[in-house]
Lab assay of single mutants.
Amino acid sequence: KITVTFNGEEKARRYYKKMQKHNLKVEIRVENNQWVVHVE
């Protein structure tokens, strides 16, 4: 499981979509004013 933190929504969403293309289970959320993407 990987957790990647971004300081911008745009970058986070781009990464999220990229990971989805690989058929990975991805989850995006905001934690402590940071955009966090969890990849299983």
Score class of each variant (00 low, 15 high):
K11G: 14
Y15L: 03
V39H: 04
W35P: 00
K21C: 12
V36Y: 06
E31A: 06
K18H: 15
Q20K: 14
I28K: 00
E10W: 13
Y16N: 01
M19A: 06
T5R: 14
R13H: 05
K17E: 14
I2N: 05
I28L: 11
R29N: 07
R13K: 09
K18I: 12
G8D: 15
N23W: 09
I28Q: 00
V39C: 07
A12E: 02
N33F: 07
V4A: 06
V30A: 08
W35Y: 04
K18R: 12
L24V: 11
T5W: 12
K11I: 11
N33I: 03
I28E: 00
H22Q: 13
M19R: 02
V37H: 00
V30L: 14
V39P: 00
M19E: 02
V4W: 05
N32P: 03
K17H: 11
K17T: 10
N32I: 05
I2T: 08
K1S: 13
N23L: 06
N32K: 06
F6V: 01
G8M: 14
V39S: 03
W35A: 01
Y15G: 02
V39D: 00
N23P: 03
A12G: 02
R14F: 08
H38E: 15
N7V: 09
R29V: 11
Y16G: 04
H22Y: 13
N23H: 13
T5I: 14
R14G: 04
N7K: 10
Q20H: 05
L24T: 05
E27V: 10
K25N: 09
I2H: 11
N7L: 09
K1T: 13
E9L: 11
T3D: 04
N33Y: 05
E27G: 04
M19G: 02
Y16V: 09
Y16P: 01
G8P: 02
K21F: 10
R29M: 11
Y15P: 01
K11S: 15
E40C: 12
T5K: 11
T3M: 08
V37S: 00
E40A: 08
F6T: 01
K21W: 08
R29G: 08
K1N: 10
H38V: 15
Q20V: 11
Q34V: 13
V39F: 06
E31L: 11
T5C: 15
H38S: 15
E27D: 07
V26D: 00
R13A: 03
R14P: 01
K11V: 12
E31C: 09
W35Q: 00
M19L: 08
H38W: 08
T5N: 05
H38Y: 15
E10F: 10
Y16C: 14
V39E: 00
W35N: 00
R29W: 12
T5P: 04
N33R: 05
E40M: 13
T3W: 06
K1V: 12
